[in-house]
């Protein structure tokens, strides 16, 4: 029988385009996001469960949910 390997999913912020509004911080159930020095959102990878709430909330749509190790 074939086994499917599911990789962990994490939120990734495009920090260059982030407006640092903090909408993502408010909706994160894991308290895994902070606004770093008023410049951009930063995700604590060890806390993030990849639920995607932040990505849906982000008014600039600059958060993506990616599988670990996946690069763009």
């Amino acid at each position: 029988m074939e086994r499917t390997i599911r990789r962990k999913r994490k939120a990734v912020v495009d920090t260059d385009m982030c407006v640092a509004c903090g909408c993502c911080v408010k909706v994160c159930p894991m308290e895994a996001i902070e606004i770093w020095r008023g410049i951009a959102a930063r995700v604590a990878e060890e806390k993030c469960v990849g639920c995607g709430k932040c990505a849906r909330e982000c008014p600039a749509s600059v958060i993506e949910i990616r599988e670990e190790g996946e690069r763009r």
């Binding site: 407006v19 640092a20 509004c21 909408c23 008023g38 410049i39 909330e57 982000c58 008014p59 600039a60």
Partner: peptide, 25 residues
């Protein structure tokens, strides 16, 4: 038209405070 807090993306106060933070930090 877009997301609820789309205003935050182009809010002049938000842009200005982010600019101040960038310069300061």
């Amino acid at each position: 038209l877009f997301k609820p807090r789309s205003w935050c993306v182009y809010c002049p106060m938000g842009t200005m405070t982010q600019m101040i933070c960038r310069v300061r930090n």
